[in-house]
């Protein structure tokens, strides 16, 4: 890529906005999924009996809604990212590309 083009894009406020927003959003969501998953793994590592505890008087244990909930949460979090990326980030990207005359 042309070095002049690189520095021009880098200097663009929109590019800086995109990089800042996307990086922050990406790491925020990464932190959330890490806490959720390693929180779950931590329960398995240190407190197995909590997950084995039955809910109410039935046999279904607490671990089942927690585990299935984590699966749903993972997919939902991914969808949250896509929703923002497909609108806001894509719009910014398009503007940057247009500005750069590409």
């Amino acid at each position: 890529m042309d070095p002049e083009l690189v520095s021009r894009i880098q200097g663009s406020p929109k590019y800086q906005e995109l990089v800042r927003k996307r990086t922050r959003f990406g790491w925020l969501l990464t932190a959330i999924i890490l806490v959720a998953y390693f929180g779950y793994i931590g329960l398995i590592a240190f407190n197995k009996s909590l997950l084995a505890q039955p809910i109410g008087s039935g046999v279904t244990s607490l671990g089942i809604p927690v585990g299935v909930g984590l699966i749903v949460f993972t997919v939902a979090l991914t969808a949250v990212y896509v929703a923002r990326a497909n609108t806001e980030f894509d719009r910014l990207t398009r503007e940057i590309v247009e500005e750069a005359g590409q």
Binding site: W27, T30, G63, I64, G67, I71, T74, L77, Y81, V82
Partner: peptide, 24 residues
């Protein structure tokens, strides 16, 4: 029983990481 679910969740949670930091 339940132990199988630990595998499933572990296989799935890598996807958000790929999405947030790497795919694009």
């Amino acid at each position: 029983g339940y132990d199988g679910l630990i595998y499933s969740i572990g296989f799935l949670v890598g996807w958000p990481i790929i999405m947030f930091l790497m795919a694009e």
